[in-house]
Design a protein around this nucleic acid. Structure first.
Lengths: 182, 182
DNA sequence: CGATACATGTAAGAAGTTACATGATTGT
DNA sequence: ACAATCATGTAACTTCTTACATGTATCG
């Protein structure tokens, strides 16, 4: 079965904090800068439908005070299992290179669902993967990367710089989370 | 007419450094960590075809020493115009929030095409937009953001942290580019 | 002779975007 | 009465992904 997209995981995480309607979920996205998650109906409603089909969320019947329809959804036990298994999945270098945004989302959700201690474990693991990625790129630049055209080399170096900055951030976040979880 | 995607712009930039085949462009991507640009044939070949249709690149006829077919492409004058107009486009806050990767790509290409002085201008402009974004988010958190659920608040704060880190980087890059361009 | 690298492409399907459609409720 | 906001959805289109198909050249 297909892996959940970051959007779907974010929807589940938000539904975990409280049952919500598609409309209110959309509104939260308009201000959330944790990567770009569209607030367009064309992405949210189909995503909610996919999650419902997989049994990860369930519509709540609401006694409607007004005639304006409004569908609240709540996460199911199965949805929660899915969410927790995502949080526990080991971080891969592949993810570091291709889905930093997803990892950041995971960190935020982890802190909220499992607490600061778990978030700290995650963030330290991310730091380790980042260091590995940095070493890999450095050794690449010293070796085969020398043959790269100028543009390619600059691109690699810029990527490297980004990973270093993120690695420093994980170190600081790790320390702060230690204080607040002990 | 549709805006060029980051992938298409990257292809043009690489073709600007030297005429290349689809295959060799794919290979460069496998190692480029400047965001994720797929090295799958299903993305590169159609993208090259789109660029050809728009007259931004042109196939070079190569006298084939062997019978193995190999199509080299080179950027056209029109393609170069498109590339330069992209580099000159003012950075918007929208871009900062939704397409950091594209901005990073632009910075790298700018440094290569137009030199360190232009890259410095761009990076300083990015710094300004980042500061604005940071201020905007800070004031949001002090105001309406107080009503956010915990998860939402953490998400905003994490995004904020990312923008601050990037802002520090632009400051440093600006200084380094000043030294190397003067 | 078989494996690997070179080289280009297509087909099916997933996901997101923009734009449109629809209708109820609230505020002025 | 009208506009704005609440609320859900669909249709067309674009792009990317994965997987497959095809064939050449090289190396051991």
């Amino acid at each position: 079965m297909r892996r959940l997209t970051n959007l779907e995981l974010l929807l589940l995480a938000l539904l975990h904090t409280q049952p919500s309607s598609g409309y209110s979920l959309r509104k939260s996205f308009a201000t959330t800068p944790l990567g770009h998650y569209s607030d367009s109906p064309g992405s949210i409603y189909p995503a909610l439908e996919r999650l419902r089909c997989r049994g990860l969320l369930r519509p709540l019947q609401e006694k409607l005070a007004t005639r304006r329809r409004r569908q609240l959804f709540s996460i199911t036990a199965k949805g929660l299992v899915e969410l927790r298994s995502w949080l526990k999945r080991p971080i891969t270098r592949e993810e570091v290179q291709h889905d930093i945004q997803g990892l950041m989302l995971r960190y935020v959700v982890c802190a909220q669902l499992s607490g600061n201690a778990s978030a700290r474990t995650l963030v330290l693991q991310l730091g380790t993967r980042l260091q590995e990625t940095v070493l890999e790129l450095e050794s690449y630049l010293r070796g085969p990367g020398k043959a790269l055209p100028v543009a390619g080399r600059l691109a690699v170096e810029q990527g490297l710089e980004g990973y270093r900055a993120l690695a420093r951030w994980t170190a600081r976040a790790g320390k702060e989370l230690k204080r607040s979880s002990s």
